[in-house]
Amino acid sequence: MSQEAGQEAAVVVTEVDDILVMRLNRPRVKNALNREALRILVDAYTRLSNSRELRCGVVHGEGDVFCAGLDLADVIPASIEEGANTYLKPGQCDPFRLYGPACSKPVISAVHGRCYTAGLELTLAADMCVASRDTQFGQQETTRGIFPLGGATIRLPKAIGWGSAMHCILAGGQFGAEEAHRWGLVQVVTEPGEQLQGALDLAREVAKCAPLAVQAALANARLAQTDGVRAAVDHIRTEGRRIALSADAREGMMSMMERRAAKFAGC
């Protein structure tokens, strides 16, 4: 694992083979996301999206919590003046998938301890989640005089149901990893301390699959959520043919016929 940012950076970004690992690195303030952290995440998600070699991303937290939310004193005054421009430049990938393009590659969150507010919204915007049994999820903004800015009001009702989401968003209610797993927000529950390894294992399973097919399937599923079934069907008509004619599709067929593991090149 080669380090790309200094240990004092708000987020440390590394590569593990074809997986981009992003470690929230402000443990003294419970990994609260300040503008520096947001900007590094934006750069990392954009790098992941544009890379031919990287296949999947994993985001996790240093210390005893994943992320307790935004660093309000640092982010809110700037966001009032600049909005998302305080951390996001035109064309860059938005980790929250709201104010800019989404990363074209899957992202897996590995969470533990507290996963609150912006931390939960980062997880909701990810594509899969691995959670330690000790994880507590919560959306606390209304207890602090604001409301969620990173997509919880849009995604949490779909993820856990209307009433459970309103209890969380409107009253500051919390829920644990086992509940999140039953609802489908969490895909894998691990013992404490094993969530990063669980996420890396899951990312490696993704990375074994054909990259173009993974990206097309991910884009189609997201399109169905945001633009509806008809838009997703139109996308299938065009992208289905393109992917079926790819070298990876031929390799997938040959590997099946020859009863061997496929070697996908992303073309």
Rank of each mutant, 00 (worst) to 15 (best):
R39T: 05
A118F: 06
E191L: 14
E179S: 12
E62R: 15
A262Y: 05
Y45Q: 10
N50A: 12
Q140L: 14
H181L: 14
L124S: 05
L196E: 04
L48P: 11
V189W: 01
T153C: 13
M22V: 08
L196C: 02
Q215Y: 00
E62F: 11
L223P: 00
F96D: 02
T46K: 01
C56F: 02
H167M: 12
V59N: 02
L212P: 04
E258I: 15
L185E: 02
N220A: 09
T142A: 07
W162A: 04
G240V: 15
A219N: 05
G150Q: 11
Y99K: 13
G193W: 03
N220L: 11
I76V: 15
M1E: 09
A44C: 11
W162V: 08
L54I: 00
A265P: 01
C168S: 15
G145E: 05
P211W: 08
L223A: 07
E179T: 12
I19D: 01
Q3C: 05
M128Y: 12
S51C: 04
N31F: 01
F264Y: 15
Q195N: 09
R97P: 02
E258N: 14
D74R: 14
G252S: 13
A9D: 11
I243F: 00
A5E: 09
L38K: 10
G61I: 06
I40H: 13
S51P: 03
E251K: 13
P90M: 02
A171E: 14
H60F: 15
G151S: 13
A262Q: 09
F175W: 10
D18W: 03
I76A: 07
A171G: 09
A262H: 07
L20T: 12
T46M: 01
R28F: 04
A247G: 15
A177Q: 10
R28D: 12
Y99A: 14
D127M: 07
C56K: 11
R97H: 11
M256K: 12
S2W: 12
A261P: 03
Q7N: 11
L218D: 02
V21D: 00
F264W: 11
Q139W: 00
E194P: 00
P77A: 08
A37Y: 11
A219V: 02
V42E: 04
R55F: 00
I236Q: 15
V59W: 02
C56V: 15
I169F: 09
C93H: 04
T190Y: 00
C115K: 13
L33H: 08
I19L: 07
S2G: 12
S132K: 10
P95W: 05
P157K: 07
R23N: 04
F147G: 13
A221W: 04
G63W: 04
Y99G: 01
C209T: 07
R250A: 08
K208L: 08
